[in-house]
Design a protein around this nucleic acid. Structure first.
Lengths: 111, 111
DNA sequence: ATCGTATATCTTGTAATGCAAGGTAAATTT
DNA sequence: AAATTTACCTTGCATTACAAGATATACGAT
């Protein structure tokens, strides 16, 4: 049981949320996720995921020149992506509630 | 993106937490998880998971007669299982914090 | 007795997905 | 021109939730 397993299906939503703020490119996304406290994200995770989301029409991409390096592929949310984000939030809150109610049954600290 | 993917690596911890309260058998566990608000749990999920956890020496099992039906296999936590539970709680809280900080960046309701 | 139902466990195969490892390429610096 | 940094992509593996199906025990009704 590792942290990586806990992320399955959750990174998707987090990435949608980050793109929702403003368009980002993959390489930048990895850095942003780390800032939010996630363990460093492999590019082998992020790029396939972005491509999958584009295939599912949750995001669109446009290439833009970089000041240093090859072109950046910027992603933004589609309407469908916005909806998916909202649904993710609902699912996440539900999951969070269930897990916390299981965990707090045992007096895990004070009280 | 479905709820089931979000559960990967999380059910483990929830099951440890439930067994921590008091010993349970698999069939009962499925019902308990539903009570906590999880979507119904397949037995194809629970039994393999319990066996895996026993293999990893997180739980032990003992057979007991049932009033109606075949023998029940009751599971309880080992010391290692207790430790794993504590570690899960730490990981869960960390994950929760990260995901929520990503999500709340967008004003998802009030304020 | 036998059949159906509820209880209880296990096995097999499939799909999803995080990620390590490796590859390609462009721009800047040395 | 060689190295470094930025940036993207691909392949293959390991993990795991779950549907579907098999097996077995106890009890009540026919």
């Amino acid at each position: 049981m590792s942290t990586t397993q806990m992320l399955k299906g959750i990174i998707d939503g987090c990435i949608l949320a980050i793109i929702h703020e403003k368009e980002v490119y993959g390489y930048e996304l990895a850095e942003r996720l780390e800032q939010y406290g996630f363990d460093s994200f492999s590019e082998g995770t992020i790029y396939p995921l972005l491509m999958r989301m584009q295939k599912e029409e949750l995001v669109t991409s446009t290439l833009k020149k970089s000041i240093a390096g090859p072109k950046r592929k910027y992603y933004s949310l589609t309407v469908k992506g916005e909806q998916e984000l909202q649904q993710f939030i609902v699912r996440w809150e539900s999951l969070q509630k269930s897990v916390n109610s299981v965990l707090q049954t045992k007096g895990q600290k004070n009280e």
